[in-house]
Write a protein that binds this DNA or RNA. Structure first.
Length: 432
RNA sequence: GUGGGUAUAGCGUAGUUGGUUAACGCGUCAGUUUGUGGCACUGAAGACCAUGGGUUCGAAUCCCAUUAUCCACCCCA
């Protein structure tokens, strides 16, 4: 087992037995997103490093210590640590800002961050994210949050808390920063090292610090909510009103400070306590300044991202149901060369009709073939030997009931098979 | 980047104070008389006991290092 070359630390394989969990999430994600009018996009796995420096922000942890950056032919590229930057770049580069607004986009893709792996945190992880571009109205915020909520509900997740906050716009944030600096100045010597360095650059992050000393100091710190300008305050109040109108429960948490620099005004998180310390299942917010910052026209926008691995972990721990994987409709067991030849055409015909059909490619005994059919959970089996070829009739065996039905091997075979199959599957679905 | 735990066949485990060919369950493959699965029984394959050193007559078992992995800090999805 000392494998010569193993998976890189912090990455995961998904084996066939588990893939249905991913399919469930992806299917529900697409259905919900499209119900709200969102269209899927695909973006490259790597981008010019500058894209992330400019959007995510040079002082953030993500950029400073978590990026996978390579220098290739004198250019600097980075494996995307998140989706928003690339999505916004796509919008700008493809002229989507000239299309009808708002643009509603979603994506399902892997992201990469060089962190220390732990429960719910991988170096390669997968996001379901979406972006709504071109509306500054708080109703857009409500729409995006309600989509996230709807998706979470559709997966069957329970006890997911929604926290919202507003971190203001550059105007009100400047005032707030001053107030925070004044506040922390007097306890300066007690702050932890990282927070001390945050004092000048980004004092809001001190509120997010989990060290007991810092959180105690900041417990009485001024709150951004009290410093919002009229526009931001009005925006936040309206959002809360819309959420109430939609019966979406939320808690205002004035200490939510997202770790990516592009956020403005509304920020929100959906959190579970069921999967360990990394319980943020969904994080997002508004980024009204980002497009301008990347050289485009001033365009309001917002979005969120969900961690697919965390969603799966939560669903598993809560015993949520995944969409059951399909199974083999018919296993064909030939006996002898002549039967095998006949089976090839039968299998082809049924596959053309859309059925999942398998037959022996190993050369096993009949008994072993039946065992195999049982193990792969085949719905029907059909044995074909000289007797069947002579009489032109065979028995279709329902593997869950053991019941056998005669079927004629003529031009009506596919039609008859369909009838028997539908009847059998219908009966089974009733019994479940 | 900082802590702490763990490392025995594909998976889950046993292996007691160091003592000959490392055990068990599940799984895989084959068979239990020749044309039918699930149960049961039989058998087979599969582990240089994470890697590299050291202590010892002798190490899966003790010591050191490395690597991987898990959990937590941090950060975020």
């Amino acid at each position: 087992m000392a494998l010569l070359i193993q998976r890189p630390n912090g990455t995961e394989d998904v084996i066939p037995k588990n893939i249905y969990k991913w399919h469930t999430i992806e299917k529900v994600a697409r259905e919900v997103a499209e119900k709200y009018g969102f269209k899927e996009i695909r973006i490259p796995t790597f981008e010019n490093t500058n894209l992330f420096l400019r959007s995510v922000g040079e002082t953030t942890d993500v950029v400073q210590k978590e990026m996978y950056t390579v220098i290739a032919k004198e250019s600097k590229f980075t494996l995307r640590p998140e989706g928003t930057a690339g999505a916004v770049r796509l919008v700008m580069q493809n002229g989507l800002l000239n299309e009808p607004m708002p643009q509603r986009l979603y994506y399902i893709l892997p992201c990469f961050r060089h962190e220390r792996p732990q429960a719910g945190r991988l170096r390669e992880f997968h996001q379901f994210g979406l972006e709504m571009i071109g509306s500054k109205s708080p109703i857009a915020d409500a729409e995006v949050i309600s989509l996230a909520k709807n998706f979470i509900d559709r997966l069957g997740l329970k006890n997911i808390a929604l926290y919202i906050n507003s971190i203001g716009c550059p105007t009100c944030r400047a005032k707030y920063h001053e107030a925070l600096k004044d506040f922390f100045e007097k306890d300066k010597e007690n702050l932890c090292e990282t927070c001390l360095s945050r004092l000048d650059k980004n004092p809001m992050r001190i509120l997010d610090c989990k060290s007991t000393v810092c959180s105690e100091i900041s417990s009485n710190a001024p709150l951004i909510i009290d410093y919002l300008c009229e526009d931001c305050s009005d925006h936040f109040e309206k959002l809360k009103g819309y959420l109430n109108a939609m019966n979406i429960e939320f808690t205002v948490n004035p200490k939510i400070v997202r770790g990516l620099d592009y956020y403005t005004k509304t920020v929100f998180e959906f959190i579970t306590t069921d999967i360990g310390a990394q319980g943020t299942i969904c994080g997002g917010g508004r980024y009204d300044g980002l497009i301008e910052q990347l050289g485009g026209a001033t365009t309001p926008a917002l979005g969120f991202a969900m961690g697919i691995e965390r969603l799966i972990l939560t669903m598993e721990s809560q015993g949520c149901e995944f969409i059951e994987p399909k199974k083999c409709d018919l296993y064909l067991a030939p006996m002898g060369e002549n039967a095998l030849h006949r089976i090839l055409t039968i299998a082809h015909g049924l596959r053309e009709e859309g059925y999942w059909v398998e037959y022996d490619v190993v050369g096993r005994s009949l008994k072993a073939q039946m065992k195999y059919a049982d193990k792969i959970n085949a719905f029907f089996t059909m044995v074909l030997g000289d007797n069947e070829l002579d009489s032109n009739k065979a028995m279709l065996k329902n593997m869950s009931t053991g019941e056998q039905t005669e079927i004629t091997l003529d031009e009506n075979f596919y039609y008859n098979f369909s009838n028997i199959a539908i009847a059998g599957m219908f009966r089974e679905s009733l019994e479940l």
